[in-house]
Every structure is written in structure tokens, then in C-alpha cells.
Design a protein around this nucleic acid. Structure first.
Lengths: 169, 169
DNA sequence: GGGTACATGTAATCAGTTACATGATTTA
DNA sequence: TAAATCATGTAACTGATTACATGTACCC
């Protein structure tokens, strides 16, 4: 086994999800992503097939393929994978995420803000409501990290609603 | 000239910057990006060489190469390019940007929030201060879209500072 | 005039996206 | 049982990143 690859955020997502699940197929991963993480960091389903393969090839995961029927692939984190995940988790980062907001990009280049603001206020309000609903329903039961992330999402959405509302006149 | 390519945000950034500049070399574009846009949507410098080429190949830009000396390439938007840009600007979007924040991802997967929060508060405070300084110095002279984008950045940074401060205990 | 930093560009690689394909289940 | 939808996977493509490489100007 060739032994070095660069670990990307996608890698850590796969490692993190598998660590939580014990064992999972790419489709399971897809479900998990859709359930919560996907709100702030979505992935193409194809990546959930290729990334585990990449990780398994260098010993971060084991792969077990069903012999009959659907011949699904089941993955598990190895101790090497667990170590990599723990190291990543233990290392804080001062990296700042960029906004990379398409609507804002248009404004930057001179688009009329009004129609954008109208659409964006609505979209962000909907997203905010969705988050708040999840928080109301499940807030107390969520793992701490997940709940905190949700709070971050709520904070960000509120900021966006405020921003675009101001522009909508 | 083969006539269809997909226009990405990168494409519109190049078109938008060139439209503002009249004529520019990739290096000029790099400077422009660094000056303001890069704060919320950065690009690799190599993209500022390859993307204009891509756009020129299908008639969105013209390319003029210096005959002597550095043989720089100078680009200009064609009417086709201008039309594409205008259409993109005129079309509002309800697309919501994902957070995709590396620090938050760690929290999501169970990292200890404290050290992360400490680092992040500091980094976001610094960024916020930088934005506010730009606003103080140049705010009044900035093109409207640029100023509005800057305000968005300030709003977002404030939200992050608030969020991470809460976590830093 | 030798070093250092800025300027300019191309090539190679790779992660991520899109497209394609087929098998299994549910539903009408 | 036909149609639609969900589940599962691979292949091809391409945009973006990384790495390399050289030219030009400025400074000590």
C-alpha cells in the first residue's frame, strides 16, 4: 500500500462520520450528511464513494465488500485513521472561511441590490426557521458539537437576514 | 473558435474585473483581487492566467500579447463578454452559501471548543478591525457595490466574534 | 554586481463535479 | 406488472491547486 495522501476536509468528514457510526456504507454516509452536517458542508454523493476508497488504500479505513446481493462496501476506521482524526481535532485553527457568496458577488460587481435582497431575505429566513425548528425539537438531545454548530448556523443566518433586510428597503 | 464553455463564478470575476479596468494583464487582475474582492472570494494566481485564456478562446475576451520585452498578455471584454456579465448581474439568485468553516467542522466532530474559540475570536477580531479600518478610510469613496460587500463582511465578522466569544467562556 | 523580492507564465496533478448505468423496492 | 423512486456504483471530465521556472527590477 502506497502510504501517503493529503487529507482534505472531505477526508476528515468521512473519518468523523465513520468513527461515529462504527461501520457504514457510502450510502449510509450520504444519509448522515444529509441529516445534519450537509447544512453547512455538503458533499457530492460520488465523493462518499471515492473518498473512502482513497482512505482505505492507505490504511485509514478497512473495506469489507458483501459477497452476494448488492455487494455493498462497508468501511471502518482503523487505528491509523482514528489517530489522524484525533490529531486533526486536537489542533485548533485560525483559518478564516471566506464568504464566497454568489449573491454578494453580484452586488460587488454592481448588480441592483433590491431584487437580490428580496430573494435572499426570503431564502435566509426559511433556512433560519428550519434551524430553529431543529433546535426546538432536538436541541437538548444533540451531541454538544452538533448543537454548537447549529447555533453557529443560526447566528450566521440571523446576520444574513439582517444584512439583506437592510438592503431590501 | 469552439463556442461553449460553462461560466463559473471565477469567469464572472474575471469578466467583472476586466469590465471595470478596461484592459488588464493577469497580474493586474491579481492586484485587483488582492485589493478588495479577495477578502471574501480569493483566487489562485494561476487561475487568473488560465481563466482569461478560457474566456478568450470562446470570444468573451480579446487577447493582445506584447511583441517585445515581457510579452505580457492584455485582455479586454468583448461585447459578447459584456452581455454575459450583464445577464448574470441582472439575474437574482436564492442560492445560499454554505458556511464550510474548518473550525466549526472540528467542533461538529467533537473537538474541544475552547482552544478553537480562543484562536477564532482573535482571528475574526483582527479581520473585523481590518474591515472597519477600510470602511473608515475609504468608505465614502467606494463604489456602492463594494461598500455594501464590505458591510456584509463586517456583519459576518461580528456574528463570528459573538459566536466564538460565547464559546471561549 | 549579487542577492532578494516582485512579476509572469506554464505544466502536472488532483479533488470535486457531472454524467452515466444498473439493481432493488415500493407504489399505482 | 409497469412505472417511479431509491440505492449503489463507476467513468469521464474539468476546474482548481500545487509546483516549477524564468525574467525583471530594485537595493545593499
Amino acid at each position: 500500500m502506497s502510504s501517503e495522501i493529503r487529507l482534505t476536509p472531505t477526508s476528515y468528514i468521512v473519518l468523523g462520520l465513520l468513527e461515529a457510526a462504527g461501520e457504514a456504507t457510502p450510502y449510509d454516509l450520504k444519509q448522515m450528511v444529509a441529516a445534519s452536517l450537509g447544512n453547512f458542508w455538503s458533499l457530492q454523493h460520488a465523493q462518499l464513494y471515492t473518498e473512502p476508497e482513497r482512505l482505505a488504500a492507505v490504511g485509514y479505513l478497512t473495506e469489507r465488500r458483501e459477497e452476494s446481493g448488492r455487494r455493498r462496501k462497508h468501511y471502518r476506521v482503523t487505528s491509523r485513521g482514528r489517530r489522524a482524526l484525533r490529531e486533526w481535532l486536537a489542533e485548533p485553527t485560525d483559518e478564516l472561511t471566506e464568504l464566497r457568496d454568489a449573491a454578494l458577488l453580484k452586488v460587488f460587481f454592481g448588480a441592483d441590490p433590491e431584487p437580490l435582497a428580496t430573494m435572499q431575505v426570503e431564502a435566509h429566513r426559511a433556512k433560519l426557521a428550519e434551524y430553529e425548528e431543529i433546535m426546538r425539537q432536538a436541541g437538548a438531545d444533540l451531541p454538544e458539537g452538533v448543537r454548537i454548530s447549529l447555533e453557529a448556523g443560526i447566528g450566521a443566518e440571523r446576520a444574513w437576514v439582517r444584512f439583506w433586510s437592510n438592503l431590501a428597503g
